[in-house]
Design a protein around this nucleic acid. Sequence first.
DNA 1: CTCCTATCCTGCGAGC
DNA 2: TGCTCGCAGGATAGGA
Length: 274
Amino acid sequence: MPELPEVEVVKQGLERILLKQPRIVQMQFLRPDLRDPIPQQLLKKLEGAKILRVRRRAKYLIFETQAGGFLSHLGMTGAWRRELDISAKSQSGLHDHIRIFLDSAECLIYHDPRRFGIFDILNEETQRKRFAHLGPEPLSKDFTGLTLWQSLRGKSVSLKAAIMDQKIVVGVGNIYASEALFLAKIKPQIKAHQLSKDRAHTLVQMIQAVLERAIAAGGSTISDYSNAEGRTGYFQNQFKVYDRGNKPCHECGGLIKQAVIAGRSTYWCSKCQA
DNA sequence: CTCCTATCCTGCGAGC
DNA sequence: TGCTCGCAGGATAGGA
């Protein structure tokens, strides 16, 4: 489901919900069988603590409490939603995995049909495991044409696979990789090391542009994404190439092509991205 | 090392 | 209408 813009929008929604720093009354684990088993005992220790703030790193949400932090990765189909005035005994939905009851009479519920998501305690070990290998944030000053160009040296993978590699830059997934390459007018199939410094500079600008526009549009809703307040995004209406195989390019009228690159569906304009 | 493939899951839409 | 098949926003282990 979510790439950086969607996770960022979820974060912003959670911030509004958690503005008054509610206390965790209870963490309830309905289905601990996510990608990795949820460390329930460690997380239970956060009961009673106030949630101080929510951050985002890459596609992870990080919740900070008085007693330590925890993290959430939405995988493909993970979603947080808020419900009001429900009890721990109330019926849960089929794919509801976690419920966090707050002293504000609200409840945060994590829902994830495909179970690719991650929910974990935040400590030195998990930070190392989850974050140590991650590259720069695409919207930060650490991500420039020069740093991207340098990190692609010697890489023979396709450029599209490279910008989806979280070690090169975080947050860019399958949709925004195709969209950014279209805006930069670069063919996704070229080898990563073939990108010139000039075009690396352009690509960085276009990655940043597409992510910022998507955040402003509330993210992209393909089938089931919505933010924590239940609102869907509308950036999917602005896709230039993603999911537009065999359709005309909005810019030049040329044919949008589709192929599998590094195991993922990829879209590009046969004329704009020569 | 680097790169590629298969895999973890469920749900949904296309096509028959 | 009902079935099967292929594919879906991510990340990683394991093999070449």
